[in-house]
Amino acid sequence: MSVVILTVSEDEADIRLDRYFRRHYPHLTQGALQKLCRTGQIRVDGKRAEASTRLQPGQAVRVPPIPVSSAARPVRDERPPLDERLVREIKGMVLYQDQQVIVLNKPAGLAVQGGPGITKHVDMMLDGLREGDDPRPRLVHRIDRDTSGILLLARSPGIAAKLAAAFRGRDIKKTYWAVVVGRPDPQEGEIDQPLVRLGMGPNAIMVAADRKDKEAQFARTVYKVVDAAARKFSWLEMSPLTGRTHQLRVHCESLTTPIMGDPKYGGEAAHVDGFADQLHLHARELDIPHPAGGRLVVSAALPPHMQETFRSLGFVAGSTPGPSRRSR
């Protein structure tokens, strides 16, 4: 056995390094993979990488000698039949679908992908959206487990690569709604606050960072107050200009107006008696370049707990428009 250099294909755009290895080396355990990463034996473009590193087409993955029963090659994804209840559940989330994309309204509390302690997630349910012998739909991006709203899927690997590239650029507009405790001052503007990760695994958090910190990631969010209940609560509309983990939650906290019900960043101020103790953050609208041309705009209705909070505070969201396709 010797070192192998694999090139990431277009069909594998934005895949995590650990999932990439599960595809090519299904007998390699997660623990063994993490050890190979820690010791620098697995590298991406010559650099050390973590299991969570996301790969891009054309990158070179260094694979050390691994005792496997076959040569490195994509392995057919054999999964047991999906329970009919899960099929109905995932189909009930569909807001829009065509031959290229599927758009879901993910409920709050449902994880997008698996992890420690997670036994049910969107990724495990995607077979319920397959049509005949078509490829299994692919996740294009992710939102937090406790965040509700729009989640975009691609019907084929090639479409997934195109959309992943669009997400890395600036040709996609994402709009979120949040209920925060307090009222921001000023009531609209741009938050330009770098972030840095502290810790590892599920207990890791993102915090505001000094611009001189070499580990800091720049993060920008445009926001405005849509409505307010006195100075106690505000309805914010936010558009992230970057895609950092927990960006909106940390940026709201940096304004000293934490998102209501945020268990990770809001502290005691975010837990308000009389309101649902759930994160009040919703991916409301997605405006994307459609792979077949033109643009697709899809909006998602608020989840039940935010609808109730809106009613209690007198916020009027109006009706949710249907999906629209338009030429450029």
Rank of each mutant, 00 (worst) to 15 (best):
A154V: 11
P202T: 13
R48V: 05
G117M: 11
P137I: 08
Q113G: 01
H280C: 11
V112I: 11
T53M: 07
P263E: 10
N105Q: 02
L153K: 04
I118S: 09
P116E: 13
T175S: 14
L28G: 08
A300P: 02
N203P: 00
T309E: 00
K47W: 06
Y223I: 04
A108W: 00
R22V: 03
P157S: 15
K174C: 05
G274A: 00
V226Q: 03
V179L: 14
L139S: 09
L279F: 02
P240Y: 13
L281C: 09
L126N: 05
R54H: 14
G109F: 03
P116C: 04
M206A: 13
S319V: 12
K174G: 02
K35P: 03
R168N: 08
L95R: 10
T320G: 02
P107F: 12
G294A: 06
D146P: 01
P194A: 09
A160E: 07
G267W: 05
P107R: 04
G314F: 00
L248P: 02
R249T: 02
S52W: 04
T257D: 00
M306T: 00
F21W: 14
A317T: 13
V298N: 03
G158H: 12
P194C: 13
R211E: 10
S148R: 01
V316I: 12
L241N: 03
F167P: 00
I288R: 04
R48H: 08
S148W: 01
K162L: 13
L6N: 06
L82T: 10
G169K: 10
D287E: 12
Q99A: 15
I5D: 15
K212M: 12
E253A: 14
L55S: 13
T257F: 00
L110K: 08
R54F: 08
L236Y: 06
I191Q: 01
A49P: 06
D133A: 14
S239R: 14
L36Q: 10
L163Y: 04
A219P: 04
R88Y: 03
R22E: 10
R130C: 07
L129A: 10
D192C: 09
P107K: 11
V101G: 06
A228N: 06
M206Y: 05
R48G: 12
Y96C: 11
A51C: 08
T119E: 14
G109K: 08
Q100F: 09
L236K: 10
D144L: 09
Q278I: 00
L198R: 12
K173D: 15
L296T: 07
K224T: 08
G294F: 08
